[in-house]
Design a protein around this nucleic acid. Structure first.
Lengths: 313, 313
DNA sequence: CATTTTGATAGTTTTTATCTATCGAAACGC
DNA sequence: GCGTTTCGATAGATAAAAACTATCAAAATG
C-alpha cells in the first residue's frame, strides 16, 4: 500500500525531473527520496521512473499514477481544510430533529435569523414522532432536537429554552369567546377535545380536564391540531392548544377564537436535547442563546427561560 | 498530515461503530486503532468521533472527513489496480512519433493489425519534423519513434525494421515510363527534383544524383512529396520517392509513373527508436516483431530486416 | 583530465506504528 | 446490589519504517 508521503515524493519528481530538487521541495534528503521512490515501486510492483543522468523521465505507468496521486493529495488537502474550518464552532452541517407539533410553527420564526447570524452553519431539519426522534438522536442519526421536556433518557442532556402556554380555543359564538382571558374554573362542564393518546399534549390536557372538572371527550379524538381546530369550528367542543400553533394557524381563523388563561397558565416546556458528551456542545449552547434572543424579541406568545441549566449532572 | 492507514481506521470505525470490530477488520489490535484515531484527531486538530459506551458516533466534522477519506482510499485502490495492469507489457498508453514523410503512409498499413493483436495497448500518434521528434523523445514527451536510421544521438537506442526503396517517378509520356525498371545509368542528364534541404530524403537524392550524373534541380524544390509529384506531372523533371508513398499516393496517379530500380535499389532504413534504459523496452521489442510480421505478409514494397539488432552498446 | 553532479547504497539514528498488559468506567445478568 | 463482562484509553516495550550521514560509481561538464 503506498503512503501519502511516497505519492508526494513521486509528484515532486514528476514536476522537477530532478531527485535533489524534488527532495529539497519535500524537505527530505535526496537518499530518502530515492529510497522512498524505490519502496513505492516495490509496493506497486511497477517501474514509475526511468533514471538517467540527462534527466528523469516518467514511464507511461508513472504518468498515470502521478495523475491519480495528484488527486489523492488534493483530497487530503481538502480534508485538512475541512478540519481547519470545522474547528470554528459555528461551521459545518448539523442535523436537527423537531416533533411534528412544533416544527412547522417554530422553525419559520427562528431559522431566517439564525442563518443571518451564523451563515457558516447549515441545519438539516427532520420532523418525526417523539420516540423516533429520541432513538435517532441516541444512535447518531440526528445531532440535536428541539423537543418538549423533560426527557427521560439518561444518555441525553437537555437545555430548557422556553415555555409554550396552552390557550383555550372555542367556537366564535361560544360565551368564552367574548372574554379576553379565561380562568380555569370557567372550563367546568365544558366538552374538551384533544389529540389521541400517545401525544404529550394529550397527557397534559387530561390532567387539566381533571383539575378543572371539564369533560374530556372520547368520542372525537383528533389526529392533528388541524383536525381539532376544524371540530371546534363545528361547535363540537372547545380545546386547549399550544401558543405557537395558535399564532400560526388560528389567529386568522374566523370561526374560532383563542383566549389565554389568566395568570399561571398551563404550558409545555420546550428545550434543546443532545447526547451527553456531544462534540458540538459549544455549538448547541451558542444556538440556544440565539433562539432565546430571537424569541424574546419577536415572539411574545412564549415565555423564554433564561437560565442556563442542563438536566442531569 | 493524515496517513492512508489512519483514514482506513476512521472509515472502519464509521462503518462498524465499534472500536474492537473496526480493529479486527483492519487487522490491528484495538489499542493500535484507538491510538491511531487519536493521532489523526491530533494531526487534524478536530474531534471526529464521540466516544461512549452505548455506541460510537461520528461528529459532523467526522462524517464529512469520512466521506472524503473514502474517496482517498478508492483512488489509492485505483492506483494499485493500475499498477497491476501496467505490469503486463502490452497494456497502457504509449506515445509514438513518426516523421511526416512516413506517418501517413505507414500507420494505415500497421495500426489495425497491431490493435487486433494487442487490444490492451493504446498508441497515441504524433507527427513532426525529425529533429523535433528526437528532442521530444529525449526529454520524455514521446515514448518511441518510427524513424529513418541511423540516428546520431548517444542516449537513444535504435532497432532497424525495414528498408524502404526509392522508386523513379517520371511523367507518363517520359521514355523511362515505358520501362518496367530503371538502371541508374538511365538517369544520366535527367533533371532530378527533390525536397528542400533539411530532409533525410534530400541528402540521399543528392548523393544519388552525383553517382548517376543526373542534374539535381535547384530551381524547383518541393516542400512536400505531394508538391514534388505535381511538378513531375507538369513535366518539369523526374524524382525519386519512397516506396510506401508511391504505394499510397502515386500508384493510382494517371499523369506519372513509378518504376523500381534494377537490383541494388537505393533505399532508406526505417526503424524504432527509444531511449536507452526505457522501462518499456520489452513492449517495444514485441511491437517490432508485430510490425515485421505485418509488413512481411502485406507490404511487398518494403524489405523487412529480420535480425534483432540494436545500434550502440 | 580533473572536477562536479547525479542517483544509489550502506550503516546508523530517529520516529512511528504496533504489540501486550492493564486500567477505569459503564453495562449486563443474576 | 454485586460480580462479571465489555468498552475505549493508557503505559511500556518492541518492531518496523523513515529519515539521516557518509560515500559510492558513473556520467556530464569545463
Amino acid at each position: 500500500m503506498p503512503t501519502i508521503k511516497q505519492l508526494q515524493y513521486l509528484v515532486a519528481i514528476a514536476d522537477h525531473r530532478h531527485f535533489r530538487r524534488a527532495a529539497e521541495v519535500c524537505n527530505v534528503t535526496q537518499p530518502t527520496l530515492s529510497a522512498q521512490l524505490k519502496e513505492l515501486e516495490l509496493r506497486l510492483g511497477a517501474t514509475l521512473v526511468e533514471r538517467s543522468r540527462s534527466s528523469v523521465v516518467l514511464t507511461s505507468t508513472g504518468r498515470e499514477i502521478v495523475a491519480r496521486g495528484r488527486r489523492v493529495l488534493a483530497e487530503v488537502e481538502e480534508i485538512r481544510a475541512l478540519a481547519r474550518l470545522a474547528n470554528q464552532p459555528m461551521a459545518g452541517t448539523l442535523r436537527l430533529g423537531v416533533v411534528q407539533s412544533l416544527g412547522s410553527y417554530l422553525m419559520p420564526l427562528i431559522i431566517p435569523d439564525i442563518h443571518a447570524r451564523e451563515p457558516g452553519l447549515r441545519l438539516y431539519i427532520r420532523e418525526g414522532l417523539p420516540k423516533q426522534l429520541l432513538d435517532q438522536l441516541e444512535d447518531g442519526a440526528i445531532d440535536f432536537l428541539f423537543f418538549p421536556l423533560p426527557v427521560e433518557r439518561r444518555s441525553l442532556a437537555a437545555l430548557p429554552l422556553f415555555e409554550e402556554p396552552l390557550l383555550v380555543v372555542a367556537p366564535i359564538n361560544h360565551e368564552l369567546a367574548a372574554s379576553r382571558s379565561v380562568s380555569g374554573t370557567q372550563l367546568r362542564g365544558e366538552n374538551l377535545l384533544t389529540l389521541e393518546p400517545g401525544h404529550r399534549l394529550y397527557e397534559q390536557v387530561r390532567i387539566l380536564a381533571d383539575e378543572y372538572e371539564a369533560r374530556l371527550s372520547h368520542d372525537y379524538e383528533g389526529t392533528s391540531l388541524d383536525t381539532l381546530r376544524q371540530m371546534v369550528a363545528m361547535e363540537i367542543g372547545i380545546s386547549l392548544m399550544p401558543a405557537l400553533y395558535v399564532r400560526s394557524e388560528v389567529a386568522r381563523e374566523t370561526l374560532v377564537m383563542a383566549m389565554p388563561f389568566d395568570d399561571e397558565a398551563p404550558a409545555r416546556t420546550v428545550g434543546m436535547v443532545w447526547r451527553k458528551g456531544a462534540a458540538r456542545e459549544e455549538t448547541f449552547r451558542i444556538l440556544a442563546r440565539h433562539v432565546r434572543t430571537i424569541l424574546s424579541r419577536d415572539v411574545p406568545e412564549v415565555r423564554v427561560i433564561e437560565e442556563d441549566k442542563t438536566a442531569a449532572p
